[in-house]
């Protein structure tokens, strides 16, 4: 696949006896947004660190535009823009100064430098606060400045590592809009998140990663299609702890149920025939002395795909 911007082949990273990334392979084409979806600790950040040339792979290769990326690569890194999970900026400098600093490290000079800085400040909506120090910004503004630095040099590949963690809904929406706008520029984007809705909204293709392994990959539709006619049904249940536990076991015995995910007050199941499962759940609850206070039936989504593939929820990784 010579036209790939990013090509990861059999990536492995070990930390002593821990295998954090285990044989991960994927590629991203020009203008494509690829989501790496997985719970905390799945290996997303470790994968990104290898892709950005910060971490030496224990095995496998990363190439960007055909050039291998390792911690010793320097020139090839000019094609990459990294937006780390934490705010990696100088808090005592303004957004414009931070942008100038990193843009110069990427080789921008003169009028091109000034023009690009103004452009990205506009994209992330910080033009009117560009001269203020970062430590005077709100959390959301810092996140946006963090993103601006990653794309100031118009990289061929932009890597965003959970860029919306810990931000308010308004800022989160602004960030997602900024990333969404990048797809029109032809930039390849690698986006990691554990928020299913972000992956669904932004990504052309999604790779699901868990325990260091890429367990599924495809468009949202392709991934959901793996569930067949499955539906996610969430029950809110109340009763003695032992009774609820027994009721959850009963659910897993019902016909067409593929997974049962315990929730704090009840359980979520993926199943083929929702009506049949709902009826069976009520019947089992009555026998166990469990009260069902509500039922939500949702169409299959990435959350359900992840649940189906791993037997655990995306958010808590348990």
């Amino acid at each position: 696949m010579a036209d790939l911007v990013l090509d990861c082949r059999d990536l492995v990273r070990r930390f002593d006896s821990l295998v954090a990334v285990d044989g991960v392979s994927f590629g991203i084409g020009p203008g494509e947004t690829y989501g790496l979806l997985g719970p905390n600790g799945a290996g997303k950040t470790t994968t990104i660190s290898m892709v950005a040339g910060l971490l030496e792979p224990s095995g496998g290769t990363v190439t960007v535009l055909g050039q291998e990326i390792t911690p010793r690569s320097t020139t090839a890194k000019g094609a990459i823009g990294l937006v780390p999970q934490d705010i990696a900026l100088y808090p005592d400098l303004s957004a414009r100064e931070n942008l100038t600093f990193f843009a110069k490290l990427q080789g921008l000079r003169g009028s091109e430098l000034a023009t690009r800085i103004d452009e990205v400040l506009d994209i992330v909506g910080l033009a009117d606060r560009a001269g203020d120090k970062i430590d005077t910004y709100s959390g959301g503004m810092k996140r946006r400045a963090n993103i601006a630095v990653g794309m100031v040099h118009q990289p061929t590949l932009l890597i965003l590592d959970e860029p919306t963690v810990g931000v308010d809904p308004q800022s989160r929406n602004a960030i997602l809009e900024s990333v969404d706008a990048l797809s029109t520029t032809g930039m390849a984007v690698l986006y990691t998140t554990h928020y299913m809705e972000e992956a669904e909204r932004l990504c052309d293709r999604i790779g699901i990663i868990d325990s260091g392994k890429l367990i599924a990959e495809g468009t949202r539709e392709e991934l959901v299609a793996r569930l067949g006619d499955s539906t996610a049904v969430t029950f809110r249940a109340d009763g003695p702890v032992e009774a609820v536990r027994g009721w959850r076991d009963d659910l897993s015995q019902l016909r067409t149920v593929s997974t049962v995910q315990p929730q704090e007050y009840g359980a979520t199941v993926t199943c083929g025939h929702a009506s049949e499962v709902v009826a069976g759940a009520f019947s089992a609850a009555e026998k166990r002395g469990v009260t069902i206070g509500g039922v939500d039936v949702t169409a299959p989504d990435l959350e359900a795909v992840f649940l189906s593939l791993t037997g655990k929820a995306l958010r808590d990784g348990s």
Binding site: G53, D86, I87, A88, P91, L105, G107, V149
Partner: peptide, 14 residues
């Protein structure tokens, strides 16, 4: 601590 070092190393800077 700020993560700026790693970010610098993700640029063409050894």
């Amino acid at each position: 601590r700020l993560g700026v070092s790693k970010r610098m190393l993700a640029t063409p800077t050894g």
